[in-house]
């Protein structure tokens, strides 16, 4: 799966983009976020307050119980502030 990070989520994780093999046991957005925290360091810091991180699956806003697959593009970012 392709993972993208934007704004302060990118700054905290220290990377903008990576491709990983879907971790074992992960089937939903929520599982993936929980797995992120187990990576420690900047990832743990970025996802410490889950309520401040938005998730998009294949460029659509995703709910926490959405399924994810190894072919997905998944993005993590703060609430948007454009306009």
């Amino acid at each position: 799966m392709k993972l993208l990070y934007f704004a302060w989520v990118r700054e905290k994780t220290g990377i903008g983009e990576e491709t990983i093999t879907m971790p074992e046991g992960v089937t939903t957005v929520e599982d993936l976020v929980s797995w992120m925290i187990t990576r420690g360091g900047g990832f743990e810091a970025a996802f410490a307050d889950k309520s401040t991180v938005r998730v998009a699956v294949n460029q659509e806003y995703a709910k926490i119980d959405w399924p994810v697959t190894d072919d997905d593009e998944i993005a993590f970012f703060p609430p948007v502030t454009g306009g």
Binding site: A7, W8, Y61, A75, F77, P78, V80, T81, G82, G83
Partner: peptide, 23 residues
């Protein structure tokens, strides 16, 4: 647009770069 389009503002302030919080 302000609440749905994925854009993020980083402001240069005297204290350094600050990400704008959603209002």
């Amino acid at each position: 647009l302000k609440t749905r389009a994925p854009f993020w503002k980083l402001e240069d302030t005297p204290d350094g770069g600050q990400w704008v919080s959603a209002r």
